[in-house]
Design a protein around this nucleic acid. Structure first.
Lengths: 195, 195
DNA sequence: GATAGATGTTGGCTTTGCCAACATTGCTGG
DNA sequence: CCAGCAATGTTGGCAAAGCCAACATCTATC
């Protein structure tokens, strides 16, 4: 009644996550259907529940992967030759770019739904993302930028700023960069970082 | 089979919206059930569909109301005696306070789901909310704050910043104001507005 | 006051999350 | 080596929810 050797998938958990990640490129998280994903992978509707007790756990696992990619993206920004402040701007630009290229994933990462069942390890990765910003900000401060502000506080403000730009851009609420150069988003992100 | 005179509700549309708004005080938008709201109002499960073609239209109508309240909240901030820059900070603080007091509503207002079917009038109200910020920023600029920046651009950056603070705070991602005074959030919101 | 349109009701279809009972398979200890 | 057990999949089914169709009731208008 089935193809031979297909009863057990091999690595269904990974396949499910991979498919979900692919779907998230074009589909909002709340439209993800566990059943549907399972069927398309070629497995029965209830199979996913052997790997994720609940839909929310599934989303949490997706977030785990997502924060991983996010961290890689942020960490792979090279130091800017013109100094730490410029590097900070580059990181902010990379942040916004990641959100733009992964619109539904990014929204999920910072949604109540995605965060609700976040594991310790996921939270840690998330914090590491923040720390990339924080470290870059600290360097910039040592180079003279807003050196009087409390570093932790400034990093929070910066994070919020960049997150806000990313989000509003995703919702199409920010004026488009007409006439502005291709550093428009970086400039916006860097509105706190005048150079 | 029914109480007399109750076949027609009178103003079901309004009642549904009101109930939804109340639910949103404690419940995420994606957990709102049209059926459930209808039942609790004492009307049949399908009745709402006489007023809203689809669930998304219902959410859009909620957003209409929501943006109205938001605009009122922003507009009711009095001018600060110490000048336009301080007024700008007050507005930013009011913005964040509104989001904090209406967590699920605020999220809905700026979510893809809520914005998807937004009517022209809703969009207009939304833009008016932005204009409150924009005007206040312009005043502050005329008083000397970042007077070299393009006003429209600066207003966008400011909006993004405040939105980001509001959002991250809602998700519990910003360090709590330990030791800081009760102007913590205003200070964070005002990280772009040094005085 | 008849009648059309607006507003509600009931029943039902489909999708989806999730559970229970059963099937198959790979691993592991005797 | 293989018996049996844990892991993993399958099928059937329940309940909740969005939404539709067919029908009921009310209200406003000519």
């Amino acid at each position: 009644m089935m193809k031979e050797g297909t009863y057990h998938h091999g690595d269904l958990r990974e396949a499910l996550l991979q498919q979900a990640l692919k779907d998230l490129e074009t589909t909002p998280a709340h439209e993800l259907s566990v059943r549907d994903i399972a069927q398309r992978i070629g497995v029965s509707k209830a199979a996913p529940y052997r790997h994720f007790p609940t839909r929310l756990d599934f989303l949490a696992a997706i977030c785990q992967k997502g924060f991983g990619s996010f961290l890689v993206a942020l960490k792979s920004v090279p130091a800017h030759p013109k100094g730490p402040a410029k590097t900070l701007r580059s990181i902010a630009a990379a942040y916004i770019d990641f959100a733009w290229r992964n619109p539904w994933l990014y929204r999920l990462l910072f949604s109540a739904e995605g965060l609700q069942l976040a594991s310790e390890s996921t939270k840690t990765t998330g914090k590491e993302c923040f720390r990339v910003l924080e470290e870059a900000a600290k360097e910039a401060q040592m180079a003279g930028w807003r050196s009087n502000d409390d570093p932790a506080w400034l990093a929070s403000a910066l994070w919020a700023h960049v997150h806000g730009v990313a989000m509003l851009r995703l919702e199409g609420l920010l004026a488009s960069p007409q006439g502005r150069g291709d550093t428009y988003w970086e400039d916006l992100a860097g509105a706190m970082v005048e150079i």
